[in-house]
Amino acid sequence: MNQVITQPPLRTETAKASHTPKTPTRRRSSRKDRISLGGYVGRAVVWLLVAFNIFLLVWMVLTSIRDTRDIARDPLGIPAVPFWENYSTAWNTGGFGTAAINSVIATLISSLLVVAIAAPAAYVLAKSTRKLSSTFTLLFVLGLGVPGQVLLVPVYIMMAKFQDISHLKMINSIQGLILVMVGLGIPFTVFLLAGFFRSLPVEIEEAAAIDGSSGIRTFIQIVLPLARSGLVTAFMLAVISGWNETLFSLVLLTTSENRTLPIALLAFLDQAQFNGADWGGLFAGIVMVVTPVLALFIWLGRRIVEGMTVGISK
């Protein structure tokens, strides 16, 4: 391995020396050399794609503040005067107001719970040397691969049964949805956090143990603060997936006062089928679905990207 690493640069030096005398600009020139015609075309395509993605977002926001008739006449136009009424229509009569509140409640509570429940489990799985722990780790990893639709019908029936037994409202209620979102989010969050805990140095816990700190105190006072960035990432990813959850919400939530945003959006589309499309209101609703996630991404993008990709390449 050592040889492989050291050899190429050596050869580079000698080769460069014999061919090009001006070593200071070496990096620049080699970089320039690499851009061929294909390279330029490639870059143009990339920037076009970037422009298209940004255009979509700008267009979405602009369309949401235009009058529906205006949109129908010229779908790509720019609003002369902002038409904010779309938002009040969507919020009040379109059902997006209740839905937004429901979405915020369901997403925040379920994300907090899933991190709170997954963190201790991830910690013991990451640090324990028991044979059992690798079996359980495998169980959580396998859970990652189970498509949601496999669980759809059984979970729905189980929730209905649980409602019958406990007399707690589970079907068509936000608390029922929260429970389902927590349950379904466990494998990913455990998997993600176990990776973070594994990367924490074991010496700190040893030091804490030698100083007489109990296991649970070490976990709460030493390990959790150290893993804060991991916990924040896990929370953010739970928020994003909770905010976008559609399949189970669609089945579990049936009446308008319990809808979450994706379901309100679907209901709004259904209505458009009968009343003609209220594009302005629809786009206002879409902005409500997209903006929080986009804001999170702009704010904590690096963490989100790392959480979604780094754990995977290991």
Partner: peptide, 16 residues
């Protein structure tokens, strides 16, 4: 520490 997550895992994955 493992039990809550494990119970949820069983209830929402294995049993279903």
């Amino acid at each position: 520490m493992l039990a809550p997550a494990l119970i949820l895992m069983i209830l929402f994955y294995l049993v279903p």
